[in-house]
Design a protein around this nucleic acid. Structure first.
Lengths: 193, 193
DNA sequence: ACCTGAACACCGTTCAAGT
DNA sequence: ACCTGAACACCGTTCAAGT
């Protein structure tokens, strides 16, 4: 029994754990430099492992991405809950969306991965950011009840529009304010009258 | 002199002209089916030519795309001029943007090509849609003078936002109305008060 | 249990050789 | 003047062979 604990995964072998960490570090650097379409063979090479080892730990590119982003999504969920408790909805919604867009601009192509996830509930990435989605839903519904967000703009709509803004600005310098300017256009509306 | 007319290109050889047409037809089908990242080798194969012949006629993927889209951009330019003369700005702007988004949804990945073009004035695609951009500029400025479009929303902003909507909806069925719904959110604004 | 790395079927792109 | 197609350096992915 001590050797096969019911329902529990054995602790990973030391070399496996080390490889996993090295792969993640190499992937983070490659994605930052070349975007989420960076070569997986190259990542394995730089991590000092064979391609098979990378695939053993992360069966798909999306799984690799998810492992790198789980923390961020968890933090965004916390941020949404904080804002719900401390800021008026009219401020909370734009502020959270701005943070979400900023995070989606971390790697080129990340907005596209997020879009795919938002349209596919079975995807690893969708599941991974579910906590965030729930917290965001609450925040938006509050804002709708308060009358500051249109009823026909769903929380998912806003996530998709934010992803679209991240996509539109993903090749601009990291410190650009263009994303926030376009976000303002979108939230307050382009047309008058 | 008759054999080397000053400044004029000789009429293309018959086989060259035929190959060009076959390549364009194959590319149109491949882009429709697989998106703008479709395999160029495969397109050459289906057109019945060697890869070198494809590259001779279209040195880059963008050049191939441009040849397929030039007509469409010309038509969109005409559409913008028509609307400027016949419809009130408050209707003309949303109607043209809707048509632009529809065209950008013709192939998967086309919105991304357009985004790249809009940020690179030297690109083949940027030059190719210049007539369209000029006509659109006129339409938007009219709308701004009439007070129906914000002064701080430039014509280029609106093209980028429209491309972003096409990107956000590019994997949805061709006949979806989702793009128009999101366009309305963007134009009239998500937030109230 | 985990890792290695050769192997496979692709890809974009080039360029010598043909006609 | 134009075309061919082999060739090069990649890519993602798999899997037999090792330890």
């Amino acid at each position: 029994m001590a050797k096969t604990p019911a329902g529990g995964a054995r602790p990973p072998r030391a070399d496996a754990r080390r490889n996993q960490e090295r792969i993640l570090a190499a992937a983070r650097e490659a994605f930052t430099r070349h975007g989420v379409d960076a070569s997986l063979n190259d990542i394995a090479r730089r991590a000092g492992v064979g391609p098979g080892t990378l695939y053993r730990h992360f069966p798909t590119r999306e799984a690799l991405l998810e492992a790198m982003l789980a923390d961020r999504y968890h933090a965004l969920a916390g941020h949404a809950r904080d804002l719900a408790g401390t800021a008026p909805p009219a401020e909370a919604v734009p502020r959270w969306l701005s943070a979400f867009v900023r995070d989606l601009r971390a790697f080129r192509g990340l907005a596209t991965s997020m879009k795919n996830a938002l349209y596919d509930e079975g995807s690893v990435l969708f599941v991974s950011c579910k906590e965030m989605q729930v917290a965001w839903d609450v925040l938006v519904v509050h804002a709708q009840v308060a009358g500051v967000v249109r009823q026909d703009a769903s929380p998912a709509d806003l996530l998709r529009l934010a992803a679209a803004l991240a996509w539109a600005t993903e090749d601009l310098p990291e410190d650009t304010t263009e994303a926030d300017r376009l976000l303002d256009l979108m939230l307050t509306g382009v047309m008058r009258g």
